[in-house]
Amino acid sequence: MNVFRILGDLSHLLAMFLLLVKIWRSKSCAGISGKSQILFALVFTTRYLDLFSNFISIYNTVMKVVFLLCAYVTVYMIYWKFRKTFDIENDTFRLEFLLVPVIGLSFLVNYSYTPTEVLWTFSIYLESVAILPQLFMISKTGEAETITTHYLFFLGLYRALYLANWIWRYQTENFYDQISVVSGVVQTIFYCDFFYLYVTKVLKGKKLSLP
């Protein structure tokens, strides 16, 4: 465990909390892509199947449970509790365009051809593209609430910190995981355009709106 990894995990946790706080306080999930949140719930479910079979540390187990809970509570808020405020007309990204290639790739490129390993690989590939419905929704409506942009910023920061974590682990432990690294780089690239808008607009007190 290194500083990049712990800050990355905390940033991830903060992102998920911010999203829940936004929904809870405003009693609205306007501007949030339910499809992205379903994908994240699917990511955690397929990745953390080893929760009971493979103990790593108390930290690891607790974080997995918290991540799963946050993901499912968020989906519940969007599709049940505050369903009336859900902006379904703008959440139109076609999930099959992500799921079909991701399922195919997880069968083709994995570490071992076992059910849990293929599902783990699926979760890694899916996470790298899970935010696309959300980014698509923002580009469609042309704007995002400031708290939603903070959510996206911390989600992107988590990815960037994980890249630093992998460089660190490669240098100190000679550990590397090609599947995670390649997917992590792809995922981080998706946030670059957003990071630019966040720094040039949101941090200067302006609302994120696209021309």
């Binding site: 991830h12 990745r47 974080m63 991540f67 076992t114 390993e117 995981d177 995670s180």
Partner: peptide, 10 residues
Amino acid sequence: REFTYVHDEL
């Protein structure tokens, strides 16, 4: 052969 890759990250 059963092979388990260690996934110790979140």
